[in-house]
Nucleic acid binder design. Structure first.
Lengths: 141, 141
DNA sequence: ATAAACCTGACTAAAATAGTCAAGTATCTT
DNA sequence: AAGATACTTGACTATTTTAGTCAGGTTTAT
């Protein structure tokens, strides 16, 4: 089980953005340089974040991106959802009515994966961008 | 983020094994049929489980596999470890001394992924095979 | 002997990942 | 109006991982 880099980068970029999000928009170019993420890749990621209204774009010279909500209101869940990073443990969830594997019962471990998903999503649900930024400042990375 | 089928199958197979683990060894063939997992694939998985001493093999005619410990003592962590299913969220962990990305500091979200890993591992650490079997019986699938 | 079942290692098709590349469009500054 | 900056979009691709298959064993109960 692993997290994809799209999810990781999205969070990194947003923390960076939030830190520098004073009055002026932050350009992807700056984030790219500071975080060592390819500009083209960042563009893909921010396109998705914008569609989910997590950030707003400011076009033109001196443009960039701005948070569209307060850092407190942006949960990790929202970010991951936006970039299609999902916690998926079950193959069997598709056939909702019946069981897994095309059988009439749930597979032996169905409930386990359900629990696990909830456990992980709880974590994401509780953490906000603000939490991450505070954590950063405190530890003075 | 997703769990691979190797991990899922390992757990499914072990629950099956534990349920039928009375006096006689359980053959992979039976598990294969009951759980709908390819026999060849099961052999790969059980080879790993055997090396980690989670199961014991009984060769020859009427052979099969037996649990090597009490179901209570086999935690999900052990199973996942055995089949190389790891929770890995960080790329940055490799360069231990210095920071991530080859920089001298940790990346902005380093602590986050650390916390996440711990959160998930806690879950795996607490769940034993026995828990899963009980859960199965109670809910009568 | 022979059949059942474990054992091992090499191989591979398909999917996912982690990007790159190209060709725009919008808007600010001068 | 021109140019620069920066967002926007979509197609493309190399690499890696996954999820197995396949072939050819070895061991042991009957």
């Amino acid at each position: 089980m692993k997290l994809t880099s799209k999810g990781r980068y999205a969070v990194m970029a947003l923390v960076d953005l939030a830190k520098f999000n004073n009055l002026n928009p932050v350009s992807l170019r700056d984030i790219s340089i500071r975080q060592g993420i390819s500009l083209d890749y960042l563009e893909q990621i921010f396109s998705k974040l914008r569609k989910k209204e997590i950030v707003q774009s400011v076009r033109g010279n001196q443009g960039g991106y701005v948070l569209n909500k307060k850092a407190k209101e942006i949960k990790l869940t929202n970010i991951f959802e936006a970039v299609d990073e999902k916690v998926k443990t079950l193959q069997c969830k598709k056939e909702s009515k019946k069981g897994c594997n095309g059988k009439s019962t749930k597979c032996l471990t169905h409930n386990l994966w359900d629990e696990l998903e909830n456990h992980i999503n709880d974590f994401f649900e509780k953490k906000s961008l603000e939490d991450l930024i505070k954590d950063n400042i405190e530890r003075r990375l």
